[in-house]
């Protein structure tokens, strides 16, 4: 489960509406090095669609999504 994934960068986008969480993620991934693991915290259900769609398009790795009571944690690894 998620507790085994150790994120290098946590992006707290809880409370932000679409497309805020995805924008925040893209901004951080842009500045990061390959191999970096990001944890995106989002309370916007739309992130369940647009984040995986972008991660696939950009060729990064969607590691895991963990549902909490009031938000989701999406783990993404930046590839080359």
């Amino acid at each position: 489960m998620s507790e085994s994934i150790s994120a290098d960068v946590t992006i707290d986008a809880r409370g932000s509406a679409c497309p805020g969480p995805l924008m925040d993620l893209i901004g951080k991934v842009k500045k990061g090095d390959p191999g970096t693991i990001y944890k995106l915290q989002t309370s916007d259900r739309g992130s369940m669609e647009d984040v995986p769609e972008w991660v696939e398009k950009a060729g990064h790795e969607l590691m895991e999504t963990v549902e909490h009571e009031d938000h989701w944690d999406i783990y993404i690894k930046k590839t080359e």
């Binding site: 679409c18 497309p19 924008m23 893209i26």
Partner: peptide, 10 residues
């Protein structure tokens, strides 16, 4: 545009 549509506001 950076996201999956043409503007942040749908």
């Amino acid at each position: 545009y950076p996201i999956q549509r043409l503007h942040g506001l749908e």
